[in-house]
Structures are given as structure tokens and as C-alpha cells.
């Protein structure tokens, strides 16, 4: 019998350190599948963020580089500029990409760096213990918004994808979700497109993945996924933005 499903070559066979129901695992796997399908494992260089995915490189079986918190796109810029033949991507969470690395994000995008960014938006900080993210929804309770996010003091959910889409240097932006098998497949298509764009030299591509963090949403995995589907998508509508 032919084997039609298995572990991607680019994904190492090691136990996960992520919480049950966490969306990172799915995103890691999707990237690995795309890398295999595009046959770019020997060309790819990943830049890992600071946050829960700090050791994403433990799972990926290809070259990776660390970046300081928020500076992934600056590091990726350095790598890509001296190795234009390499396929370089960053994998960043909402704190890394939208808060502390907002300047690096906007300027790398605005320079039209020929890079791919996979942006995991789960509306909360995981690694540090469930604090408010720039993408935390209004009234959402976190460790640092114990009474719910109040726009008066904590501002509004920051829609970086829509913001980036305004920039001339940006080629492709799409928001996807991993809340159901169908959406996971759509997410994979978007990630693949973002890598194909880079291979073709089209410029900056970003895929925002709405992802569940059951631990810091204080929900069961099933409820967390449902929350992403029903609550998060209201603020962050899915689809191709640019």
C-alpha cells in the first residue's frame, strides 16, 4: 500500500514542547510541507523569533538563525541581501512582529525585501505568561488587562496586515486561520504562495495565521479554536488583503 501521509522531511521527529491545542505545531508543519513540496530545503534559511516559537529551529531540519526580540526581519534582511539565492523567511508572533519589532516589520516591508514572513497571531503573549498582545481583542482579559482590554488605556487591536498592505514595497498579504481542516489547507496554500513569490523575486510577502493559545485564553483547545473562529475573525477578517 502506498504511504500517502507522513512526517515532512523538513520536520524533525522530536516530541513537541508546545501546549496541547497550540497553533504553532500546525504552522511549523505547514512550513515544512511547503519547503518539501517546493524542494527548497537546501536553500532555505529560517529566522526564529523570541516568544514561544523561539526554538522553532529545533523542529525544522534546515538552516536557522536567531534574532533579538522583534528584529527577525532585520536579521532576515542581512541574510537575504548577502545571499540572494537563499530562500529566507521569518516566523514571528504578535509581540515580536507587531509590538517590539513594529519598526523592523514596517521598514523591511517598505523596502520591499524579497522575504517571506509567517506571522502567528494568537492575540496573547504565551511565553511570558499571558499578557496583552498588540492584537488582543477589546475586552479580552489577559494578565496585564485583568479587567479586559480597554481602548482608553490600552488602545485597539493593531491590524498590521492591513497596515502593511498600504505600503508600495509589499507584494502579498493574506490572513488565514488554522481553526478547521479546511482553513488549514487554505493556510498552507497561502504559505506556499508566499514562498513562491520569493522564489520568483516578487518582493515582500506576509501570511498572518490566526492561531489558538488555549493555555492563556484559559480555554479547552476546542473552545479556543472556536474562539478564534467566532471572535478573532470579527476583528481580523480572513482573506487576501493584497
Amino acid at each position: 500500500m502506498d504511504k500517502i501521509f507522513g512526517r515532512p522531511k523538513s520536520l524533525r521527529d522530536i516530541p513537541t514542547h508546545y501546549c496541547s491545542g497550540c497553533g504553532h505545531g500546525i504552522a511549523h508543519r505547514l512550513i515544512s510541507e511547503v519547503v518539501d513540496e517546493l524542494d527548497i530545503r537546501e536553500r532555505i534559511i529560517g529566522v526564529a523569533p523570541i516568544g514561544c516559537a523561539v526554538i522553532a529551529y529545533d523542529y525544522w531540519d534546515f538552516d536557522c538563525c536567531e534574532a533579538a526580540h522583534g528584529r527577525a526581519l532585520a536579521v532576515a534582511t542581512g541574510i537575504k541581501r548577502v545571499r540572494p539565492e537563499a530562500i529566507v523567511f521569518t516566523y514571528q508572533g504578535d509581540g515580536d512582529l507587531v509590538a517590539i519589532g513594529c519598526a523592523e516589520t514596517i521598514h523591511a516591508a517598505n523596502r520591499g525585501e524579497n522575504l517571506t514572513t509567517v506571522f502567528i497571531n494568537n492575540a496573547v503573549y504565551g511565553m511570558t505568561g499571558g499578557q496583552m498582545a498588540p492584537t488582543t481583542l477589546l475586552n479580552q482579559k489577559t494578565a496585564t488587562t485583568p479587567f479586559g482590554r480597554d481602548a482608553k488605556s490600552a488602545g485597539y487591536p493593531l491590524k498590521i496586515s492591513e497596515l502593511l498592505a498600504q505600503l508600495s514595497g509589499v507584494y502579498y498579504v493574506e490572513r488565514v486561520s488554522t481553526d478547521s481542516p479546511v482553513k488549514v489547507l487554505a493556510a498552507k496554500r497561502a504559505i506556499k504562495q508566499a514562498f513562491i513569490n520569493q522564489i520568483e523575486g516578487k518582493g515582500f510577502s506576509l501570511v498572518e495565521i490566526l492561531s489558538a493559545c488555549p493555555t492563556y485564553l484559559g480555554m479547552k483547545p476546542t473552545a479556543a479554536v472556536k474562539w478564534v473562529r467566532e471572535e478573532m475573525t470579527k476583528e481580523f477578517p480572513l482573506g487576501k488583503i493584497k
Binding site: C65, R71, A74, V75, T77, I79, A103
Partner: peptide
């Protein structure tokens, strides 16, 4: 490669990337 970066934070991180890539 010459890049006028958006900040010093970015500049040093770009250098880190370029160096990591062997330059």
C-alpha cells in the same frame, strides 16, 4: 550591500544576519 536602516537596533541586527550568512 549598503543599507540605511530604520534604527540602530535594526542596523546591528542586519549585521548579525549578514554575518550569520557568512559575510
Amino acid at each position: 550591500v549598503f543599507i540605511q536602516s530604520e534604527s540602530e537596533l535594526a542596523a546591528i541586527s542586519m549585521v548579525m544576519g549578514a554575518s550569520a550568512a557568512g559575510a
